[in-house]
Design a protein around this nucleic acid. Structure first.
Lengths: 131, 131
DNA sequence: CTAAAGTTTGACACCAGTGTCAATGTCAAG
DNA sequence: CTTGACATTGACACTGGTGTCAAACTTTAG
């Protein structure tokens, strides 16, 4: 698929898709005419990149995180101690963000319940840009 | 306490504390000499502001979130339907970020375990800037 | 064949969050 | 009283993520 379709399917602008590629978060094959071509797998990838960036992770780190996800999936058997330590450090940063956001989320939820608006919590479907 | 102490205790620079105040995320009393004075409660507040900002929440929203936390704590009995809907919307955005980060966190964890570095997971203490 | 829609690269621009510096004022210790 | 540490405000500047526009090319539809 071409960049336009990828954009509509992920809800990420073409501008950003190209930007992410430039930051080396994405790779794209080129058709003979020079157009970028993407596979199904890219849809997922782009969504995750965008999601992490929106969660305040700088692109440099996004790369590391996604690479780790791949490595974890492929059951990489080993890695240098130093890399592992770096990851462990990032881990606490990520966890801190999660805790912080979770707290706000819970506050919103209890507020909505306390004010008789639980109905709105039912609509808590279809994540905006999640994944 | 004065701004310097608040800064060291929260790990947030004085520059940012003043910036947050300017963005109306913080309020400070003034001593007769014009110095800002803070209470214990501010320590918590500043940490949360910084945490949310680092989690990619724009300051305008941070204000809304923290206000909601206060309201939830004070058992506010009601609020206009429109406000509630706005909050419900933000909720899905926040949840999306949480999901996204959680996924990366889990990936890091399983990667570290898979590579015999579980030791490092023990050190998952003292959050950097959490709260 | 032509027009419209989509793509490419590259430039310019904007905004929010931060750092840093300067000039001035306050206060505590020697 | 002087010095040094800390505050105040305000300005300037940088960076990263985005929007937008332009010029040139490709592909698709009519």
């Amino acid at each position: 698929m071409k960049i336009g379709e990828l954009a509509t399917r992920t809800g990420v602008t073409t501008r950003l898709i190209r930007y992410y590629e430039q930051q080396e978060l994405l790779e794209a094959d080129r058709a003979p005419n020079g157009y970028r071509t993407y596979t199904e797998a890219h849809v997922e990838r782009v969504s995750r990149v965008a999601g992490l960036v929106q969660a305040g992770i700088p692109t440099r780190l996004v790369k590391v995180l996604l690479d780790t996800e791949d490595a974890a999936a492929r059951k990489q058997p080993t890695c240098p101690r130093e890399v592992a330590e770096q990851l462990a450090t990032e881990l606490v940063g990520v966890q801190a963000r999660i805790d912080c956001l979770t707290r706000s989320r819970d506050a919103i939820r209890s507020f909505l319940t306390a004010t008789q608006h639980e109905v709105l919590l039912r609509e808590e479907r279809e994540p905006a840009v999640a994944v």
